[in-house]
Simulated scan of single mutants.
Amino acid sequence: MAQGCHWADICWQVVNLQGEAPSLSLVQRVHKAFNHRAGRRQYQYDKCGRKPFKVSVAVEKFLIKRLLALRLVSVCTAATLRRESTVRQVLRKHGYHWLPRTQKGKYSGKQKLERLRFAKAVLRLTQAQLREKLSFAMDGVILSVPPKNATDRENYIAQGETHLWRRRGEAYTEALAGQQPYAQQVPMDRVLPLWGGLSEGGFAVVTFHASRKLATTAWCGLVRAGRLRRAIQALDLVTKHGPWKVLCDNENAMAAEGLSAWRVPPSSPDLNPVEKMWAWLRRRIRQKDREDLRKRRPPPGKAAFKLRIRNMLASKTAQDVAARIAGSFRKTCRDVVARKGGMAKA
């Protein structure tokens, strides 16, 4: 240890492979066990004669069988498996890798044609016409509060819900796309559903709601009450008094005068700019969660988590990101046309 250097200072200067600072007790243990003559930590049982542990064929079959069952219902279990080196070696031996839950979807010929028509229609608009037409690109998202259990929280923050163990040829398997039944998803006490949208004028929240899925009648009530209208009017660079076009995948959701739907082709998240905003928001949430864990802060409650989301979305950074995303919509449509209706590059 450097002379005059405090333990806390060493903790901040050292990080592991995940970029996380070690605990004070870990630094002190490593320093105490370090052998300066050998230049490393020496273990008491280096030459105890114990043979390396080998997994039997029966155990390998059991591990693969459990993986195939558990990955359909539990993301945290798949993340936990990643932390066990012996299990990880067995999974890789059998062709399983830590990959995204699903990759870009395959479209039928009819779907590609519909997507192609939509993208070409966008490209026929001038930049000024598109800015006027794209009053509000809207969709919902479900965010999740980190679990309170220490082990589950560490796994969730380290790995999230985006990856699992699968073979490379399983990219288009529907069962692995993350669309689990409600009973197998994040519990309601950790769920924070949100509806919002963006344009070149920035981002605005339409509503937070209590249920996992907002019913059509409840949504129409919010629209009639003026929630959607106020969200659009809060943005710059749009006509303040309408009429407005709302880019969404449900044309029946417009139930107020001055509002009409600009329908996105089904199963086309790349053609709704707000999906990129949700991806950005999830990355920012993960950064804050890791910071909380690193600084040993307790996990936020649902109310504190909701306030954090509001502050993130109201920040100048979020507004600038939303404006850039809306401004790049033509680029996304050009990519779809170049791919003949296929999924645009992320």
Rank of each mutant, 00 (worst) to 15 (best):
Q3V: 04
G4T: 02
H6N: 10
C11A: 13
N16S: 09
L17I: 04
Q18H: 15
S23W: 00
L24A: 05
S25W: 14
V27T: 13
Q28S: 09
V30Y: 07
A33K: 14
A33E: 10
A33D: 15
R37K: 11
R41T: 07
Y43W: 15
Q44N: 05
Q44L: 09
Y45G: 04
K47V: 05
K47C: 08
G49V: 00
P52T: 07
P52I: 03
K54D: 01
K54F: 00
V55S: 14
S56Q: 07
K65R: 10
V73P: 15
S74C: 14
A79F: 02
L81V: 01
R82S: 07
E84F: 15
E84K: 14
S85K: 11
P100G: 11
G109Y: 03
G109E: 15
K110W: 13
K112S: 15
E114G: 05
F118V: 05
T126W: 07
Q129F: 03
L130V: 00
L130S: 02
R131F: 02
A137P: 04
D139P: 08
D139A: 06
I142K: 09
L143S: 03
P146D: 11
N149L: 03
A150C: 04
E154K: 12
N155H: 04
A158V: 00
Q159V: 01
T162S: 08
H163W: 12
W165H: 06
G169I: 00
A171M: 07
G178W: 04
G178N: 08
P181D: 06
P181C: 06
Q185K: 09
Q185E: 08
D189E: 11
D189M: 11
R190W: 06
G196L: 00
G202A: 02
F203Y: 12
V205F: 10
H209Y: 13
T216N: 09
T216S: 14
C220R: 10
L222K: 02
V223D: 02
Q233R: 11
L235A: 03
D236H: 05
D236F: 03
L237G: 03
V246R: 00
L247G: 02
L247H: 02
C248N: 09
D249L: 15
N250V: 04
E251V: 12
N252P: 06
A253E: 08
M254A: 09
W262Q: 00
P265A: 02
P266L: 14
S267N: 06
D270K: 02
N272P: 03
V274P: 09
W278N: 05
W278I: 02
R282T: 13
Q287G: 11
K288R: 14
R290C: 10
D292L: 04
R294K: 07
R294G: 12
R294A: 09
R296H: 07
P300K: 06
L307P: 00
M312H: 08
L313R: 01
Q319E: 12
A323W: 01
A326E: 09
A326P: 01
K331A: 15
R334C: 15
D335E: 08
D335L: 01
R339Y: 09
K340Q: 15
K345W: 12
